[in-house]
């Protein structure tokens, strides 16, 4: 309990520090630091509008006050106003967030779906042809950067095989599941392949080590069938690095998808952030980074909790502290 409280306090501190930092640095970095409203609105605008905007977002008060009002807005899901998009940030942020979340969750899900069985089987058939071949393949795919993989897979699946439509606009699964899948297939594949390759290597190494443990020999000596030795005894003892890496990946979802978003012209959070920073779109930058920080910190919290879920020793050590 004390542990959970401690973690939650940590979460809040990190969140406040980072979001406040982003706000301050965005304002310091402006072309005309003294006049955020004018920069934000851009171009030629009436003094009247500037005054209204300044008053509305308290842009003339000190940073702490501004931060306080922004935070209050966040709590009521009012993320502020974005001039380049001429929209309330909340309205146009939603589809962007969803696109990135779909990309990230799909790729992580499929990467795990592939990585776990392959790594387990590799470790089981260690140094046999399957292991050697797939070890080479994973090494290869880790080395191929996304900028190479993206055009390659686009060429194969979209241009040559023509299995998938040429990048239609965003479709939600609840609107048209089939089209949604077709739309996301290639971009997700680009993200999945290097992820899966990394995780296969990670998990295989840990599995190989676990399989040499005495308790694995004991499990065999009890007559436990190999599949249960692998899945019931060895895997759970080998997932710690994998869980950590999946956590990192979940947290860094947006940055990782940037190239893919840009290449496949998918409007996600990564591309949004880049454009927003370049056009001094204050509230968009603040909102997107707030979401990112929240993601990273929450996922880390989740990773920490899952350690305890997996390992009773960690659970007990924490209960004592």
């Amino acid at each position: 309990m004390r542990y959970a409280l401690q973690r939650f306090t940590q979460f809040l501190i990190v969140f406040f520090l980072v979001t406040f930092g982003v706000m301050v640095f965005m304002r310091i970095g402006l072309n005309k630091p003294g006049d955020p409203a004018r920069t934000m609105l851009g171009g030629t605008v009436s003094q009247d509008l500037i005054d209204t905007t300044t008053r509305r977002f308290h842009l003339d008060s000190n940073y702490l006050v501004q931060y306080w009002y922004w935070l209050k807005g966040m709590l009521t899901l009012d993320f502020g106003y974005s001039n380049p998009n001429n929209l309330n940030v909340t309205t146009y942020l939603k589809p962007r967030v969803l696109t990135t979340v779909f990309l990230g969750l799909y790729s992580i899900f499929f990467a795990l779906l592939v990585a776990v069985p392959v790594a387990v089987y590799q470790a089981y058939k260690r140094d046999r042809p399957f292991d050697k071949l797939s070890s080479f393949a994973t090494f290869f795919f880790i080395s191929v950067p996304a900028v190479v993989l993206a055009p390659l897979l686009k060429y194969i699946f979209i241009d040559w095989l023509a299995w998938f439509p040429r990048l239609s606009s965003k479709v939600y699964p609840w609107d048209n599941p089939m089209l949604h899948i077709k739309n996301f297939f290639v971009p997700v594949l680009v993200l999945t392949i290097p992820l899966a390759a990394t995780w296969i290597r990670l998990l295989r190494a840990d599995m190989v080590q676990t399989l040499q443990s005495d308790f694995i020999t004991l499990a065999s000596a009890k007559g436990v069938p190999p599949s249960r030795v692998l899945w019931g005894h060895a895997l759970r003892n080998s997932v710690f690095s994998l869980v950590t890496s999946v956590g990192f990946q979940l947290g860094g979802l947006v940055g990782g998808a940037l190239i893919v978003e840009a290449y496949f012209n998918m409007k996600g959070m990564g591309s949004l952030l880049v454009v927003a920073i370049l056009s001094s779109d204050l509230f968009t930058v603040q909102s997107v980074s707030a979401i990112l920080v929240a993601c990273v910190v929450l996922v880390n919290l989740g990773v920490d909790l899952s350690y305890a879920l997996i390992d009773p020793r960690i659970r007990h050590a924490r209960a004592l502290s």
Partner: peptide, 8 residues
């Protein structure tokens, strides 16, 4: 110490 599965 090492012959029992620590997670079971």
């Amino acid at each position: 110490m090492t012959s029992l599965n620590p997670l079971m």
